[in-house]
């Protein structure tokens, strides 16, 4: 009996785990290995250079710049789509008629590819006939309108706004799921105790949304680390690296300049940052589970 159980465990797990080890875990370890080399991407051979790539990281102004932009991205991710998603979820959670249609329209962008989202927003920012500049011009704000994606001051934030447009729907979905777990008895009790709408929102609903908030915040931070597709499509990290994120810089160093060793070192740093964030997230989730079980 016990033997046949082990037979099935191994039979079922063999292929999934083998795949995971060969395609995910192994390559991850190999990234550490390549970060100690000067591999150029073409030739089969490479030399060991020790920690040279890592010492380069700390003096490379482009790396500091990418870190800064990634932090800006995270900060924006924690505000724009998170608060927007929360506000929409609260507004749409009421038993208003037609809420379903509104919800669908807000989460429709989630099913679009970031390649398409980027394309859509390139047109919004198009200098001559883009929606943004047309609107600004018609409001008499001709001085404000500009080539948004070609100006170093605005390129990063313009890309983030496009990304946030899609992420808002995702945050809304998670907050809405969290709201369904708020018991109506609790709200009625608060009302009977004389709480007005604002009070019951701040004291009852928002605290009960804590698990959903942890998820939304974690997703925002982790997805910020992954920010690549939309940057690649809208600006490629430019102009003058003004919209370079860590993931974008890693790609450029590795697959544009063919510094695969240096690119690996950047990916190792990316991995370490992700580990810290993910560990923090798992701890929060576990804490919440203990709280509610």
């Amino acid at each position: 009996m016990a033997r046949s159980r082990w037979f099935w465990r191994i039979a079922f797990l063999a292929i999934p785990l083998l795949l995971y080890l060969v395609i995910v875990v192994g390559p991850l370890l190999y990234s550490f290995f390549f970060s100690l080399t000067d591999w150029n991407g073409f030739s089969f051979d490479f030399n060991f250079v020790g920690l040279e790539n890592f010492s380069k990281i700390f003096v490379d102004p482009l790396f500091g710049n990418a870190i800064k932009n990634t932090i800006i991205w995270m900060a924006a991710a924690l505000t724009l789509p998170t608060l927007g998603g929360l506000a929409l979820a609260l507004a749409l959670n009421s038993r208003m008629r037609g809420a379903r249609i509104y919800k669908s329209l807000f989460y429709l962008p989630i099913c679009l590819s970031l390649a398409v989202v980027g394309q859509i927003w390139i047109w919004i920012y198009q200098p001559r006939w883009g929606l943004l500049n047309i609107t600004l011009d018609s409001l008499g704000l001709v001085d404000v309108s500009r080539a948004w994606l070609a100006s170093p001051e605005t390129a990063l934030i313009a890309v983030i706004v496009a990304w946030a447009w899609q992420q808002t729907g995702l945050a809304m979905v998670i907050f809405l799921a969290g709201l369904t777990s708020v018991p109506t008895e609790l709200l009625e009790a608060a009302q009977i105790d004389g709480a007005n709408q604002r009070q019951s929102l701040l004291r009852v609903v928002i605290p009960l949304l804590q698990p959903a908030s942890v998820v939304v915040i974690a997703l925002a931070v982790i997805n910020s680390l992954k920010s690549f597709d939309i940057v690649y499509i809208m600006t490629g990290g430019g102009p003058f690296h003004s919209s370079d994120t860590l993931a974008m810089m890693m790609y450029n160093e590795s697959f544009k300049k063919y510094f695969m060793g240096y690119g690996s070192a950047i990916s190792v740093v990316l991995f370490l940052i992700a580990v810290v964030l993910i560990a923090f997230y798992f701890r929060q989730v576990r804490r919440l589970e203990n709280l509610y079980d």
């Binding site: 999934p16 390559p27 991850l28 690549f228 590795s254």
Partner: peptide
């Protein structure tokens, strides 16, 4: 299980170069 699920959260950039080399070879 946690080891497998954690894979969901990592940026794919961390395996890009080794996979590129693997599929090339």
């Amino acid at each position: 299980f946690i080891f497998v699920v954690a894979g969901m959260f990592f940026p794919p950039q961390i395996v890009l170069i080794p996979l590129f080399r693997l599929f090339n070879s």
